[in-house]
């Protein structure tokens, strides 16, 4: 029987904080080493998809099994974790993953972007710029950007190896031919460091420019597809486009109804069954910080003062 290796920083204090019977951050140390090796390779070759031995995790595929394995491999007892789902900290997925690491690693958790050292995310990049001391971990459902036109894995690997990326533009061509503009609005393919074409995971294309030369390390984990890839700090990330149809991000005529921000990604929230709606920041922490600093929006159609009072539907 192989000896069970404990996390090097295991102490009576961390034991006291975590649920007994588990190693620090759930995964055993050998698995973490394997994942760290994949991460290091990913960092060394930006945008390259590194295969890894993805483990069964106590949540279903598609809920972030890749992301939590990466987080478990990089998190330490002194880290502060933030988990985002669609920009918010209070949705089911985010709450569950946060409590998972609170229980198994005993780490501090936070809603505040600036306080976090590790941020696991699904569908968004925080509006607040990230710093060199932070790691952003993405949950990725389909890591292969070429998959839609080439079903064979052997062939897509060869296409990456030989930089045969012409076909990526075929889908953009199709959009322009049909709709007069590139309509792909999320999971918009990017080229990393002038070499690998990479799927940025289903973030809105609004967030693509934030990936470019970001100060924080960006790690991507796909649990079902068993792939890890990475974008090191300050690496060039360029969204694919045509010379005469350049890449553009979404814009809104409205600003946030709660905090008045005009430069953040907005969610449309239906407020009643009479067509009433309001636009609010998708990044809940960003919105709260702005309101705490005294910014006020127009309140939307129904003039709700705070986000907490968005009606549950039966109030009308």
């Amino acid at each position: 029987m192989a000896d069970v290796i404990d996390h090097p920083s295991r102490t009576a204090a961390t034991d006291a904080r975590t649920t007994s019977g588990y190693n620090f951050a759930y995964l055993d140390e050998q698995t973490k080493r394997m994942i760290r090796r994949a991460i290091l390779k990913g960092v060394a070759v930006p945008g390259y998809q590194v295969p890894f031995g993805s483990r069964e995790m106590p949540l279903p595929y598609g809920w972030g099994t890749g992301g939590i394995q990466v987080t478990a491999a990089v998190i330490g007892p002194d880290d502060t974790l933030k988990v985002i789902d669609q920009g918010a900290d209070d949705t089911t997925n985010a709450v569950n993953i946060r409590s998972f690491f609170a229980k198994t690693a005993g780490v501090a958790t936070t809603d505040r972007t600036v306080e976090a050292t590790v941020i696991q995310t699904r569908h968004r990049i925080p509006e607040t710029p990230l710093s060199e001391n932070q790691i952003l971990v993405y949950q990725v459902p389909i890591p292969e950007p070429l998959r839609w036109l080439e079903p064979r894995e052997t062939e897509t690997r060869k296409m990456h190896a030989l930089e045969e990326y012409g076909a990526m533009h075929v889908s953009l061509y199709e959009d322009i031919a049909k709709y007069g503009r590139i309509t792909k609005s999320y999971n918009y393919p990017v080229r990393v460091n002038g070499r690998y074409v990479m799927s940025p995971s289903p973030i809105p294309k609004f967030d693509n420019p934030k990936m470019d030369r970001m100060a924080a390390l960006q790690l991507f984990g796909a649990g079902r597809e068993k792939r890890i890839y990475a974008v090191p700090p300050y690496t060039k990330v360029k969204s694919l486009d045509f010379e005469d149809h350049p890449f553009t991000i979404e814009s809104w005529e409205q600003s946030c109804s709660l905090c008045g921000a005009g430069d953040s990604y907005l969610d449309e929230v239906v407020t009643d069954d009479k067509g009433g709606k309001m636009y609010v920041c998708s990044d809940s922490d960003f919105c709260e910080q702005r309101r705490a600093a005294g910014h006020v929006g127009d309140g939307g159609d129904s003039a709700y003062a705070t986000r907490d009072k968005i009606p549950s539907g039966d109030e009308q």
Partner: peptide, 22 residues
């Protein structure tokens, strides 16, 4: 490529050799 339009089928080779002007 049966799932993309005739125009994209013809244009694919051009895009493959680096033409980026729609």
């Amino acid at each position: 490529r049966m799932r993309v339009s005739a125009g994209a089928n013809v244009g694919e080779r051009l895009m493959a050799i680096g033409d980026r002007h729609y």
